[in-house]
Each structure stands twice: as structure tokens, then as C-alpha cells.
Design a protein around this nucleic acid. Sequence first.
DNA 1: ATTCGCATTCTTGTATACAAGGTTGTTGAC
DNA 2: GTCAACAACCTTGTATACAAGAATGCGAAT
Lengths: 218, 218
Amino acid sequence: MEQKRSDIIANQIEELIFDGTFGDEYRLDEVQLADRFAVSRTPVREALLRLAQSGLVEHRPRRGVFVKQPGPIALMEMFEVMAELEATAARFAAHRITDEAIGELKDANQRCNTAVEAQDTEKYYRENEQFHAILYRESGNGFLEQECLRLQRRLQPFRRTQLRLRGRLKQSMKEHEQIVLALENGDAVQASDAVRAHVAVQGEKFHHLMASLKTAAA
Amino acid sequence: MEQKRSDIIANQIEELIFDGTFGDEYRLDEVQLADRFAVSRTPVREALLRLAQSGLVEHRPRRGVFVKQPGPIALMEMFEVMAELEATAARFAAHRITDEAIGELKDANQRCNTAVEAQDTEKYYRENEQFHAILYRESGNGFLEQECLRLQRRLQPFRRTQLRLRGRLKQSMKEHEQIVLALENGDAVQASDAVRAHVAVQGEKFHHLMASLKTAAA
DNA sequence: ATTCGCATTCTTGTATACAAGGTTGTTGAC
DNA sequence: GTCAACAACCTTGTATACAAGAATGCGAAT
């Protein structure tokens, strides 16, 4: 067995929360989930514990665990922190990055570009993630890298939504190129600022998107 | 019951790891721990899962869980990230902080001072933590606050060691005052820089301490 | 004597049984 | 008709039983 069943289950439940099958405040019933995944309550409980730790669900003692979708404020806060973490990674990377890694970034960017032209948002999304992952790695700080990846994963579904906005992809590509340029020049301040803006704008776009949905619904 | 037994056990095990009872690479036997805490394996397993999530122990499938003390490099990396997170909190706080909170910081500082003069390192330690906690809160970003508290908690035992260095306490106090001053002036850059330096120096001091211990042992 | 193979044993991972607290619905009194 | 108290049920939390993989030790063969 490559991994425990509870890990697999945790990922599956995560997916179900992300895609909206389990909405906000939905109570995750242990026996129901155990039934769904054809296992006993034990691995389900372990999975739920993991999700509670990562903040995706809330654990109310003797009551159960409930889906805790972040509200617009929490989301903005998370994007704000993400922007700062990535900006830090970029600042560190500006001093430490190798020519080879610059090449990797350019390659990833290239793949992003082809995805944009093929209108393959799914592919763009993956390659975009890859681009950022390289940046984290090149910060030269393994702990920072892990923290960035963790938060990236957490924000994944919301970033996804936001990318569908018209014209955002092309703009995003330009920003990537600016980031690479700053890194190439070893300009820590510019790299940092470019990355911060690039990430922060996603939070803002998301916010606008939410607001427009809200007014449309009202 | 105010909290689950697994939570209590997790904290106890954490404590035992922090105070060195369980050294690096020590295997945490489930039945042994269950015996020690007079419970069944179930809550112990849940506690170990939590510790694995927080990175304090490593979980090797079908092998067991092992204490994973961070090495000097990992520790430096963590302090580096902590410095950046706190610097960010300070930058945000410089714009958002209230007069009342400034007063709270000054009070906390005052209590630190009395602790220093009473040579009560334990008290100094607690009050120092409080000072930083106020800073996190005043960032106005709840998510950032939580992340800071999490990392603060993780680095707690190492910070503690470092504070014992001669003259560090007085120096640390001066830095606190500079931080408050910068915040009072609403100077985001200076507040941010002061906090970054204040935290980063802890990592460096710790590094020196480790190095001296190493050469002494050799 | 050393090493390979097999079997025993020990530990983790999962399922089930039991305990304890929480929820809900019904019944009776006002 | 409404509200409160009680009881039955349901869910979580914990303990124990069972299954399966990994470590270990013994023995045989080279």
C-alpha cells in the first residue's frame, strides 16, 4: 500500500468540499462517509482530523465536523498572506536563483503561453502552479517552500474560479514575464513587488467576482 | 469534557518532545504511550496524527512515528520565515493599529521589564510572547495572526534556549521599544525592519549557540 | 562461519463493540 | 396552544478485537 486509506479519503473529501458537493456548514457524518467509501469509521475519523487541522472543516466536540468555507474576508486575508509569502520567496530567489532555474521558469512560462493560446484553462492552471512552485523552490528556504505550497493548495479552488475572468490570462502572462525579468536582473525589490502584485490582484479579482455574483443573485 | 483526551495527550507528548525526554529519531510506541497515559491506542493514534500534521514527528507507514527534531538548517529557515511573517504583521499594523493597542504593547513591555529586573526568565518569556501576540493581532489580518501564532508555538522551545544568552534580554527590550516607537509614528518600513531584525537575530543567536555547543563537544 | 530463507512475533492499520453525551420528539401540565 | 420535562434515539469518543505488513531470530546450507 503506498499510503494509508485515511489519506486517500482525506483527499477525496477535500475534493468534494472544493467542488461544492459539501457546502458550507454541511455536517460530515462519519457513518455516512464510511459507507460512501466502504470503510469503517476509523479511517474516516482520521481523515476528518487531518482536514480539521488544515482548517478546511471545523470540529465541534461531541457534535461533529462541519465544512467551514472561508468567507470573503478570510479569503482576502489568505490571499494577502499568500502574496507576502510569495513576495518573500521572490526576494530570496533574486539573490539565490541559478541560471538553470531561470531557464525552468521560462520553459514553464512557455507552456503557460501555449495553454493560453489553446484556450486550455486546465492546462494553464497546472503550468501556472508549476511556475510558482519553481519560484518557491528557488527561494532557497525549504520551510518557506513548504508553507507556500500548503497555502497554494488551500487557495487552489478559488484561484481557479478567478482565472476564468476575461482577459486575466493574458495579463497574468505579462506579469510572469516581468517577474522572470526582475529575477534575471537580480533585482530583489522589483521581483518581490511584481510577485506581490501578481498574487494580490488574484484576491482582488476574486473579491470583485464574489461581489458581482452577490448583486446578481440579489 | 472541555476537550478530547487525544488533544490533551497531544499536548503532553509535545511537551515531552520539547523538554528532550523523547530525543530525535525516538520511536513513539503506541501501546507504550497508551499505557503511560492510561488510555487505549485510539486517542494516542489521534494525538500522533496531529503531531505529524504539525511537523513535530514523522510518520513512516507501517513503521511507526518518529520524533523529528529540526536540524540547524531547518531551524534557521523557520526563523527566517518567522521574521518575514512578523515583519509583515508589523507593516500592516503600522497602518491599522489603534492607540489602545499601542498602550497594550507598552504595558506588555513594562511587564517584560519588571521580569528582566527580577531575573525571572520564565515570566519574561511569557510576557514577550504576549507582546508579539498583540502585534500579530494588530496586523488586522486574522489569518496572518493565526499563522504567526502557529509558528511562534513551534519555535517556542528554541527561542527559550536562546534567551538565556548573556545580555540578550536587555538588548531585546530595547528592540521592543524601537518597534513600539515606529508603530506609534505609523512608520511601516521602520516597524517592519525593526521586527525583522528583532526576530532574525534570535535565529542567528541560536545558530551561534548551537555552533559553540558543537565545538565544545568536539 | 556466514548468509539466505523461513517462520514467529510484534506493530501498525482497520473494523467492531461499548460508553457517554447530545438531540429530538412526545406527552402532560398549565 | 405553548412550554417544559422526560425518554428514546442518535452521534461521537474510546476500547478492544482482528488483519496484514514488517522486523527478528533461528536454522540449514554452502
